[in-house]
């Protein structure tokens, strides 16, 4: 284990989790018969983060997760999980993957499903898996086919956590759950990740799942990377400007900044910008730090805006060569 598990449980430690790299993607792309699902994605996910992977439907989220989870091979580029190829035994052992449809054997009992995990995983933690199942009062002798959607998700979670992964990949984990179960499962997910220092990468298109849950963000749209980095850093490197425009003419000095998106409504304009080196002073506008929703919507609505990666998310050439 990578030893950063204690970091969370003990608030005395600095908040920075282990500085290892959980996922490094070097220009990965995936082409299907109908075209490219993912193109030239390069980013780094530091270990110990809880990372949201956001994008519209069909943006390539599932493809990216599948490559990291060793279910797909990239057409171009390479991806490393803790420095190893996804198909390597080492990476395979350290990664757990929860597919969107949460597949389980319908005729197996809950107990047999956990036995599956025990039989196939050398590092299996039966107690952790059982605790998660028990917390939802799911009977161990019940067949999977007779369980409710929430209970089935819980069993799938138990199977994923019982593997004691260092990297947990979840594809739309909460999409078919009612709000109560969703809150509960998110709590379980975060608590487990906190206790064991697990890196979590989960895709979603529900902003409410991200707020307060993720501390890292990867945004893709139309197969390309839009944003990657710490949520706080990403928010702070943007400003939401509001002011009055003159006959549709936006203030000229707006051009000193990288404009992600502008919208006008009546006499008012709103612009999501990345402030230039001179700062935001001197403009006829009011500047605020955007919230997560404003930032994401801005980028998702403006696919032509230049992508932004914070330093911790960048893959530099030295690493690329070393890989």
């Amino acid at each position: 284990m990578n030893g950063n598990g204690a970091g969370y449980g003990d608030p005395g430690e600095p908040g920075e989790p282990g500085d290892g790299t959980a996922i490094a993607a070097y220009g990965i792309g995936k082409k299907y018969r109908r075209g490219w699902a993912l193109r030239d994605c390069s980013f780094r996910l530091p270990a110990g983060r809880i990372c949201g992977l956001v994008g519209p439907n069909g943006a390539g989220k599932t493809t990216l997760l599948g490559i990291a989870g060793n279910l797909l091979e990239p057409t171009t580029g390479t991806l490393r999980v803790f420095g190893e190829a996804p198909e390597s035994e080492g990476a395979n052992r350290r990664t757990a993957f929860l597919a969107q449809e949460k597949p389980l054997f319908r005729r197996f009992t809950v107990e047999e499903t956990l036995r599956l995990g025990r039989e196939l995983n050398p590092g299996w933690d039966q107690r952790a898996a059982e605790d998660i199942v028990r917390a939802g009062n799911v009977p161990m002798a019940a067949r999977i086919g007779t369980l409710s959607g929430g209970q089935r998700t819980r069993v799938a979670f138990a199977l994923a956590f019982g593997k004691r992964p260092d990297l947990l990949i979840l594809d739309e984990p909460m999409s078919d759950l009612d709000p109560l179960v969703r809150h509960e499962m998110m709590g379980t997910l975060l608590a487990e990740a906190t206790e064991h220092g697990t890196t979590v990468l989960m895709s979603t298109h529900m902003l409410s799942e991200l707020e307060n849950v993720c501390d890292y963000l990867v945004v893709i749209a139309e197969g390309g990377l839009r944003l990657a980095g710490e949520v706080d850093d990403l928010l702070e490197s943007h400003a939401l400007l509001t002011g009055a425009h003159v006959d549709g003419q936006l203030p000229a000095n707006l051009a000193h900044h990288t404009v992600v998106e502008t919208r006008t409504s009546g006499r008012q304009f709103t612009a999501l910008v990345r402030p230039g080196p001179d700062g935001l002073d001197g403009g006829a506008w009011q500047a605020e730090t955007p919230n997560l929703e404003e930032l994401l919507l801005g980028y998702l609505r403006s696919p032509q805006a230049a992508p932004l990666l914070t330093p911790s998310a960048r893959i530099d050439d030295v690493q690329a060569v070393a890989a």
Binding site: G9, P11, M186, L190, N212, D215
Partner: peptide, 22 residues
């Protein structure tokens, strides 16, 4: 105070958020 794990479990809040507050 509740640990970051306890807060995460009951409130579904990222542990780093709790640590930042603390």
């Amino acid at each position: 105070l509740p640990t970051a794990k306890e807060v995460a479990e009951t409130c579904a809040v990222n542990p780093n958020t709790t640590l930042k507050a603390y």
